[in-house]
Design a protein around this nucleic acid. Structure first.
Lengths: 204, 204
DNA sequence: GGTTATATTGATCAAGTGATCAATAACCAT
DNA sequence: ATGGTTATTGATCACTTGATCAATATAACC
């Protein structure tokens, strides 16, 4: 019994939301045209009417995911009230790490997309640039820290520090995905703090 | 034209090698019964004769991968000529990090398995224990370091330090996989060295 | 050389996939 | 109303996948 019901672009959004619902519940592999259609309460054909292909749907879902999830050391204003550059950096990292367990589903999806990127150059490109953006978001903080006492942080570049900071958060993301029950924000942060507390001479 | 040619277990290994070849070239998603069979130059049915299912093949491939790849602070004898515990630790880390770009294909595969493990309990278990083993491999070095000057490393446990070391290497692994072109061993190591050189107060 | 055991094949099945498309119902303008 | 436009359907095709299995070629044994 065909017929139109919501002629506007509500349908696009509805289908996209359905795709996310399916993905969040059963992961990317379960996002098939039929599954999304069923979730949205429409026929399978309609998915191809609004999105040229399933690939197209997945790409748009990734865009949505990147826009609404990986916030990355956002709103630096929220950190400006902290004077010490080192503490600022730590807090920025902590904030992102705290998000991970909350957004576990989305983090999982993100890794799914990375795997999917193997066969889909467009997706690979999007993910890489998202990660690059994430890493670069730490650079101002890193530079402030390095500049605050060049003698002390000799040999460390802002790029390198930002890279390690991003790597730390990403490592936590992996743990969250793999073993959510055992992941502990406080322990991870304490471990990070312990790393930077080790004296120089002994590890040079 | 059926018939036996290599009645021993050569065939098992040949098929496993073929599976690895396919996986290394086109990643885990491309490891289908037919693709592996074609790579090995046998029929598809034979894959199921030696391995009950594709899942079984994948699990054995993971075993092979773990046994032949993640060497993890191996051969401590190679480090014994270095007296200072801190330098030993750093060299162990450096050695593993240097391996990452070289073995990029395998590291990628490992992360593919990681993602797959999210849905596959058996694989998840194997990966977890492999990572635990990896972390524990750093413990002797960490303990030696802590014991060398208890006053200095007050509050830091060998477990915590080993965890930090493993986490750092894993973070580098992630970068290698996600954005190989931008990863730089020297920069990462320099940053690590500088980090442990930073005084506690500034990053607490 | 005949017999038996087994490794190997290739055809085949069922399930699931992305994608296409004619048919059709709902809406809008006239 | 009436016709035209468009969103929507569901059947359908081609293809890939994991898996099964009877048939069979080869080797080993006596």
């Amino acid at each position: 019994m065909p017929g139109r019901r919501a002629p506007e672009e509500e349908r696009r959004e509805a289908i996209l939301r359905a795709a996310f619902a399916v993905a969040a519940r059963e992961r990317l592999g379960a996002v098939t045209a039929r599954a999304v259609a069923a979730e949205a309460g429409v026929s399978a054909g309609l998915v191809f009417f609004y999105f040229e292909s399933v690939d197209g749907l997945l790409v748009e879902l990734l865009d949505w995911l990147l826009a609404h999830t990986i916030v990355a050391a956002d709103s630096p204003d929220r950190l400006s009230h902290i004077a010490d550059p080192g503490a600022r950096m730590m807090l920025a990292i902590r904030r992102d790490v705290e998000w991970l367990p909350v957004q576990r589903e989305r983090v999982e999806l993100f890794f799914d997309y990375w795997v999917l990127g193997t066969r889909h150059p467009g997706i690979r490109r999007k993910i890489r640039s998202a990660l690059t953006r994430y890493r670069d978001a730490f650079q101002p903080l890193a530079r402030a820290l390095v500049d605050s006492d060049p003698e002390r942080y000799g040999g460390m570049t802002a790029e390198g520090l930002a890279s390690v900071a991003a790597g730390f958060v990403e490592g936590c993301a992996l743990q969250v995905v793999m073993d959510p029950a055992q992941f502990d924000v406080e322990r991870s942060m304490a471990t990070l703090a312990a790393l930077v507390r080790a004296p120089a001479s002994s590890l040079a």
